[in-house]
Amino acid sequence: MKIKPINILFNMLAIVTVISVSFVFFNIFSGARGYAVLTDSMSPTLNRGDVVFVKQTDFNSLNEGDIVTVQFADGSGFFTHKIVSIDYVAGAIRTKGDANESEDPQPSMSEQIVGKMWYSIPLLGYLSIALNEMDLVKLSVISSVVLIVLISVSVLVSKFRKRGGKNE
């Protein structure tokens, strides 16, 4: 039996889709939130381009050495660092990046803590980083080029198939 290339592509697309959708649903239903790592301040544990998944955790169950994602006090962003000390009474933690020489300058309060790191995946965060660092014009141009290429390929395949049908 001859295997058509289009069927191979279809099967590959199906496998990639099933894996991707399962992964996304797994994270959504387990309550994990993903964050793209922008800097190497937690290197070698976390590197730029990683995606870190965190789960909400009770403050009293946190321990020194846990890696947590914390929202800046002014709500302007997030950082992910390791806990170096905990004040359970005051509800505050002090954090430090593995690659940084000193602790972060300010303590973080329990209400700023988004969650504790569950697991991380390398490289996946570059999608988010690229979008954040790319300006709107570049993004529009790239999207347009991709769209034109896709339409052209589709038209060419369609013509090729019609011609092939006539020859048969």
Binding site: G34, Y35, A36, T39, S41, M42, D104
Partner: peptide
Amino acid sequence: IALVMVLMLVMCGSYFTLMSPTTAWS
């Protein structure tokens, strides 16, 4: 089905692309 799969993949891509960045006091 292929069209639906492509749409789902785009949605998965958006899930990763639209993730908040986490940074540090560096």
